[in-house]
Design a protein around this nucleic acid. Structure first.
Length: 787
RNA sequence: GGGCGGUUGGCACAGUUGGUUAGCGCGUCUCGUUUACACCGAGAAGGUCGGGGGUUCGAAUCCUCCACCGCCCACCA
């Protein structure tokens, strides 16, 4: 049946319509079906506390989704759930700021309640944006990282790690954020440039000889436990084994030797404190130095600080410098700029403090992590380097406990007498140790009867690293066992060292396998000038504004623009081009509507003409290339391929080549053109479908739905190449095209309308006149062609 | 200090295993209302591929050094 398309494409109306219908018809719902191969997608659960959604978010999720739609059309049974990461520090800080909350004046449960409310709001915003963009998520399969199922899976994973003896609790120096007042992991650190001073301070040996050390952290002097020199350093080697006297505090520390001391740096004499940096920790560990814990959880000096006790680190620094000056122990100060490690969530420099924390063993396992990493397919391949580099730089076991409120609780109680940890039973999960009782009445170790719940919550990555085996909990029945490992993990490069790495760790320990087969790494969205989009710079437009102005299809079109793993600038021109493409598709549909009476593929033998065969050959090539590109996750290349076939071959040439046949009385020729148009355009629509889901669906429903069983173009199959057997040889068709170009050029340069009829034209291009003469004459409207 | 990515006409980008006059889009200029489309069509101008050196019959494409941009890691006594 023939339908009348509106004259112009009403983008907003069409997009809205299909959003509603896809939701109502549950077009993207996952239904297990043993016959079809599975394609399981694990995309990042975004932080719902991110209140600055921008084009970068659109870009990375769209890019993964192009592949997902492609795979769906390739016959895969796609399982595409969506999660929201709403636990942990980012949410807490967001809530504190938004409501101006002082945590000391609010109960833990009140605070958590507000966090939950905010995260719900945040999730709703994301959900709406993804939906507006046409992200083909199965919305009946969602999770949040604080939901009972996520808590259960995380806790179960943790208990398993304990049983496998790779989880341990230990008092040791840990990376600590004095602002958030929690332990943090190595992966949570960020570099920050800051101005500081190098202080040259005089020590004395026990025998009274003068020594000078250089430090940027004079406030750590009360925690000084040793001085180090290089044993090859002629100036100092005779000091090795002697004692030095710490100024202001007047206690003795040993002078030791280490090859790692660089005689050129500072004064060549290194002060080791507990603990200022990695060196301090290394020396402390290997040489069994004293433990002098100086820093309190809130970033003030402990009792060890003597008269400086209670001062903040920076205040203590000033006072100590003053006092050193007064005692003549400060020799000089030099300005310098150096990089400090700050907590990425708040930008405050981290410290090391002595604290009891839970750790997962990841150090000394480089070969294991590398082996696991190599078992994955990395797209693009060079991003494996990022993983490799990270794995090789791991110095700490993964500290997973956080001294915060809003997060997944540890399923752990401690015996109040002997501190033995009691883990929850699997059948009781999820548990909240504050509300639930431990599974034993008596401590198995000391028979104590009182238990204290673990106060800490888990690191957010301890939870989100479980997503590969959390996803399957969203379905019931037979499918469950088949939904792990996932097929595709898609994320941006900056979370390779966290999300990807920790997921690999968890799957390795818990299931002795890899968490997913393919990793697809996207770049970042940049602003129009090429600057990274950030909240601080305010260099972004809200996605809603962009969507309203250009439509989802156009924005998705832009998102195809970056090569895999490359950054992508915001580019309004690309939005416009995307919009133009949707309109062009619409107008071609109008053309078909005007010239085709019956939208059916004919079963009769069709007398295809040269131009028809030519365009079908071109189509086959385009299909082959686009398919290969998509298979390699190269959506940018695929789009270019489809684009150039559509614009340069199909609309610029083929449609012009056949117009005359529609005005002629040759029914056979007309029929062949109609059939070719149908075949080609239908394939084009399908190839554009992963990128432009709305306009392709609209046209599909108008003209092609009746030809197929699929209720949506997105559930139809990806186009196959057309079989071209027993057809004329058109390998010289390019000469005909060249002749046509020649006439077009002549008309254009002579100011003659392309539609004007010419009596005769002398061609320079040599063509097979018998074969293509009539065709060229009709297309370019010339009565007589000759050489 | 180590590593990754990038540097191609005004702008934003493609350039497969090295091979004929280096491509596309936008922009610019000139034309054209051809019954799908002016959110159109035809045509033109414009680059020697960041810089130096090398390999080769031949390099944007391989090697080497350097510069600049972006990012990651490490160090900073």
């Amino acid at each position: 049946m023939k339908k009348e398309l509106p004259k112009t494409y009403n983008m907003e109306e069409v997009e809205n319509k299909w959003r509603k219908i896809w939701a109502k018809e549950k077009t993207y719902e996952f239904n297990y079906d043993a016959k079809r191969p599975l394609y399981i997608v694990d995309t990042p659960p975004p932080y719902v506390s991110a209140d600055h959604l921008h084009a970068g978010h659109i870009m990375s999720y769209s890019q993964a989704e192009f592949i997902i739609r492609f795979k769906r059309m390739r016959g895969y049974n796609v399982f595409y759930p969506m999660g929201f990461d709403d636990n942990g520090l980012p949410t807490e800080r967001f809530v504190e700021k938004k409501y101006n909350i002082d945590e000391s004046k609010i109960t833990k449960s009140e605070f958590v309640k507000i966090c939950l409310k905010e995260t719900e709001k945040g999730a709703e915003r994301y959900r709406k944006l993804w939906n507006d963009l046409g992200i083909s998520v199965d919305w009946s399969k969602t999770y949040s990282t604080i939901s009972p199922v996520a808590v259960k899976v995380s806790q179960r994973s943790l208990i398993d790690l304990w049983k496998k003896k790779v989880l341990y609790r230990k008092e040791s120096p840990v990376l600590w954020c004095p602002s958030c007042q929690t332990a943090v992991a190595q992966a949570d650190l960020e570099d920050k440039e800051s101005d500081s001073k190098m202080n040259y301070i005089s020590f004395k040996t026990a025998k009274g000889k003068d020594l000078t050390i250089a430090t940027t952290r004079p406030e750590l002097i009360p925690a000084c436990v040793a001085l180090y020199v290089n044993p090859k350093d002629a100036r100092f080697k005779n000091l090795i084994g002697e004692k030095a006297v710490v100024p202001l505090f007047n206690y003795e520390v040993p002078i030791k030797a280490s090859d790692e001391v660089d005689a050129e740096l500072g004064t060549g004499l290194m002060m080791v404190c507990t603990w200022g940096d990695q060196d301090d920790l290394d020396k402390w560990r290997t040489d069994n130095l004293d433990t002098r814990a100086l820093i309190e959880e809130d970033g003030t000096l402990r009792k060890l600080g003597g008269k400086y006790q209670g001062l903040k680190l920076l205040e203590a620094r000033e006072r100590i410098i003053d006092d050193l000056k007064n005692q003549g122990c400060l020799i000089k100060q030099e300005e310098l700029t150096h990089t400090v490690n700050v907590h990425e969530r708040c930008g405050v420099p981290t410290e090391f403090i002595l604290s009891k924390q839970w750790f997962i063993k990841i150090t000394d396992m480089e070969d294991v992590w590398l082996k696991r990493g190599k078992q994955l397919n990395w797209y693009p391949g060079y991003r494996f380097k990022d993983y490799e580099l990270w794995v090789k730089s791991i110095k700490w076991d993964w500290c997973i406990s956080r001294q915060r409120y809003y997060g997944v609780p540890f399923p752990i109680w401690y015996c109040s007498k002997c501190e033995e940890p009691i883990f929850a039973r699997d059948e009781d999960l999820p548990v909240n140790p504050f509300e639930d009782k431990p599974p034993v009445k008596k401590c198995p170790k000391c028979k104590g009867t009182k238990f204290i719940p673990e106060q800490d919550v888990m690191d957010t990555w301890a939870t989100s690293s479980c997503t590969p085996f959390l996803l399957r909990e969203l379905v019931s029945g037979k499918a469950k066992d088949k939904l792990f490992p996932a097929t595709l993990r898609a994320n941006a490069f900056e979370i390779i060292r966290t999300w990807d790495f920790y997921s690999i760790v968890k799957s390795h320990y818990n299931f002795n396998t890899i968490p997913f087969k393919d990793v697809m790494i996207s770049g970042h969205g940049f602003d129009e000038k090429g600057k990274k989009i950030s909240k601080r710079l305010g260099n972004y437009v809200s996605p809603d504004t962009l969507l309203k102005k250009y439509g989802a299809d156009a924005i998705r079109y832009w998102a195809t623009g970056a090569g895999l793993g490359q950054n992508l600038r915001l580019n309004i021109e690309e939005f416009k081009k995307g919009k133009k493409t949707t309109i062009k598709l619409w107008n071609v549909a109008k053309f078909l509507e005007m010239n085709i009476d019956d939208f059916k593929l004919s079963k009769e033998n069709i007398a295809f003409e040269f131009a028809d065969i030519w365009i079908m050959r071109e189509l086959n090539e385009a299909i082959e290339k686009a398919t290969n590109d998509f298979e390699q996750y190269e959506f940018a290349k695929a789009r270019n391929e489809i684009d150039s076939f559509f614009w340069s071959k199909f609309t610029d040439y083929y449609i012009e080549f056949i117009k005359y046949r529609f005005f002629s009385d040759d029914q056979k020729s007309k029929k062949a053109a109609q059939q070719t148009l149908l075949i080609i355009f239908y394939s084009i629509l399908k190839m554009f479908a992963p990128i432009l889901p709305f306009v392709t669906e609209e046209i599909y429903q108008q003209f092609f739905a009746e030809m197929e069983e699929a209720k949506s173009i997105h559930l139809s199959l990806w186009p196959e190449q057309i079989e071209l057997k027993n057809v004329s040889d058109v390998s010289d068709f390019d000469s005909a095209i060249q002749a046509i170009d020649e006439v077009r050029k002549y008309k254009s340069e002579s100011g003659i309308s392309l539609g004007a009829q010419l009596d005769e034209f002398e061609l320079e291009t040599k063509i097979d006149m018998e074969k293509y003469g009539e065709f060229v004459r009709k297309v370019v409207r010339v009565d007589k062609l000759f050489f």
